[in-house]
Nucleic acid binder design. Structure first.
Lengths: 156, 156
DNA sequence: TATCAATGTGTGTATATACTTATATTAAAG
DNA sequence: CTTTAATATAAGTATATACACACATTGATA
């Protein structure tokens, strides 16, 4: 039916409804806020929440190439390439040419393992705080829904 | 009990469990993937998903200052300041000094309204696709959970 | 084997994000 | 009314993110 005659009030109402219903907006907003909590928690280690996640992914796929790592993270390979460089500069991972000399294989360093060990209880702290404030059940459902959502993009 | 004797297998298992349970990681992963879908949908308008959200927020708070807008978005004011500049360069919003000359008041332009009108059905398309693939009920629960999560940071 | 297509990464460019610091303006104290 | 504290924003710096493109390497084909 078009919007040709939308006045200020109509636009305001449209904005309100869209903000309430938009999955992307609410996902991003929650993400912004939550990541600050993680960043705060890991701050004593000089680590960001995103870097903790990535280091965890590296150790779970030790020696994997960029492209192989990017897949399960749902991340562009070029993005991952840059993020890995950050961990490398911190001395947490090493990057080595594979047998296939196009590939760069990523491995965690001893220092990386050490940081991960110190980070784990900090992560646990955030996790428990969330479970406490939102309830275990709600967290469980949220995780399921998020995984279903990610699953939709499996092929891409 | 410490991790002093963690071997490769233990680390791999730790990584797997953490990846499964971490709210931040799964939130971010879903966010990354989903935002690409929005970006694709809005591409004909030269708009990103984030920019659509922001433009919607502007029109819902027309004439608000940066700080007033940042609050409901859960965004840093400095971040919002930069994001607004992008919309301004596209001619979608105007920035004007307020009576309090420290404030910059943001308003949508006619061009901005026009783009929003064209964007709305594209947004609706994504929304319906999600509802179709995940189910209305699941989307509803997900939105509720995300809002509860954001609510935790209300004071900050 | 020489050529060409496919693959794996990195770089250029743009945006999103936050924290810290600088600047300007208002409000409060004296 | 002057000094000082509080507030609003922007700019500096760093990271996260993606897309398009360039480059190198491998694999396939003629």
């Amino acid at each position: 039916m078009g919007f040709s005659n939308l006045d200020q009030e109509d636009l305001k109402e449209l904005s309100r409804r869209t903000g309430q219903a938009c999955v992307g907006f609410n996902l991003r907003k929650a993400s912004r806020l939550l990541m600050r909590l993680y960043d705060e928690a890991f701050e004593p280690l000089g680590l960001k929440g995103t870097q903790f996640s990535l280091l965890m992914a590296v150790v779970g796929n030790n020696g994997a190439a960029i492209g192989e790592l990017a897949q399960p993270l749902g991340m562009e390979r070029s993005t991952l390439s840059r993020n890995i460089t950050v961990l490398q500069k911190k001395g947490l991972v090493t990057v080595e040419e594979g047998e296939d000399r196009r590939q760069q294989r990523i491995s965690i360093t001893d220092s990386g393992v050490s940081v991960l060990q110190k980070a784990q209880p900090l992560w646990q702290g955030v996790q428990e705080r969330l479970a406490c404030e939102l309830g275990e059940e709600r967290i469980k459902n949220l995780l399921e829904d998020l995984k279903s959502l990610s699953q939709l993009f499996k092929g891409k």
